[in-house]
Simulated assay, not measured.
Amino acid sequence: MAGLLALLGILNDPGGSGRLLVVALCDAALALVTLLVPWERLHPHSPAVAGLGAFAVLGLSTWSFGGVATGTGPFLVLLYAWSALHFPRWILGAYALPATVAYLVPLIITDQPPIILGSAFILLPAALAVAFLIEAQARHLRDDRLRLARIEQWRTAMINTLAHDVRAPLSTVRVVLEELRETATGQSARMLDAGLRQTARIARLADGLLDVHRIDSSGELKLDRAHHPAHALVEDALSYVRDDVDVRADVGEDITLYVDKQRFEQILLNLITNALRYGKAPVIVSVVRDGAFDRLEVRDHGPGIPETLRPRLFSQFAAEGAQGVGLGLWIVRQFAAAHGGQASAEARDPGVAMVVTFPVADPIPPAGT
């Protein structure tokens, strides 16, 4: 930037074109050297050496213009700001001597009056103070980034551990329940059936944890979509809901959804859980066709969504607290987007309706075609 400004300065001061050209060439040479040096192979603080060359060019510029330091001060501060973003405080302190030499020596050589020399006692400490402030903030940001990176590593390891390690004991539980179910009758059989459904759901939730990790890291999710009767999909999902909660389905027999069955089930159960946790019964589940989209709607009759929460409702950890960690609606939004639809919240009186749309697929081809 300094070299380009020197070239532009020729238009304003044709008489000093020779000096401006020399300064521009020096700036260009310094920039070229810094671009060609393989800094990544050297010590992390080695680029600070380039600052010494920059100070030398600043001094040359001041001297070549007969002690006029109009352009030296801003670039001195800019150089300090760059250094503060990348280097520790001791390097900023070490820069004090070359910065002073680069600013004062050209002024002394060109016999500038004391009042001009005295400007160094204002500019240089101010530039150093600004650098210290920037360095402190940059250091805090780097520390926060490292802390977040460690948290992310721990979270990833935890998700993978939970998702994988839960499968072995769950398989044992499932085998035991299946063995007992073969000879059970009456109420015992119904209880064992419920237990088998829940173990199957836990296995799918473990897969869902891995999906969360994959969505977070790559933004992609592989779906296994097929045509499913909407009524059967909803009824299957509601079989995992406790009998003592008021959840009602209003789904026609003639609607067919083109969805990933497992992901649809996770979407619906997350929305029902959210409605029961934060809303009020009854919870009404409906599926209707609206043009090019099928709309899954889960409505509660509670107090609605607080205005402060609405902008971040479908974000991660939006409503974390004693009742949950705030991932349910975020997962719903990600699964909806993977299907080519979207998730939204619509106000009702009373309550709120969570709506997820799915694109309508081509009709199921007739058999034998």
Rank of each mutant, 00 (worst) to 15 (best):
L221Y: 10
G252R: 10
A194V: 00
R299A: 15
P229D: 13
L221H: 14
S286E: 14
H231S: 14
K222R: 14
Q266C: 00
G291P: 06
D260T: 06
D246K: 02
E265N: 12
D260V: 08
D236Y: 00
A318D: 07
A249V: 05
A194P: 00
A230L: 03
L238P: 02
S286V: 03
R248E: 13
L221C: 02
H228D: 03
V288C: 03
G195R: 02
A206T: 11
V288Q: 13
I267G: 02
V287M: 08
P229M: 10
L276V: 13
F264Y: 13
D207P: 01
D236S: 10
A281N: 06
Q323G: 00
H227Q: 07
V234T: 05
V298F: 05
L210C: 01
A200T: 10
D243Y: 03
H213Y: 00
D224Q: 09
A203Y: 06
R299C: 07
R204Q: 14
P282N: 12
G279E: 08
P282H: 12
E320T: 07
R299M: 06
V245C: 03
I305H: 08
N270T: 07
G279W: 05
G291Q: 09
F264W: 05
R242M: 07
T199V: 15
E307C: 00
K280A: 15
L271D: 13
G219K: 06
L268W: 03
A194E: 13
A318M: 05
F293V: 15
A206W: 04
Q198I: 04
L192S: 05
V283G: 04
H301M: 10
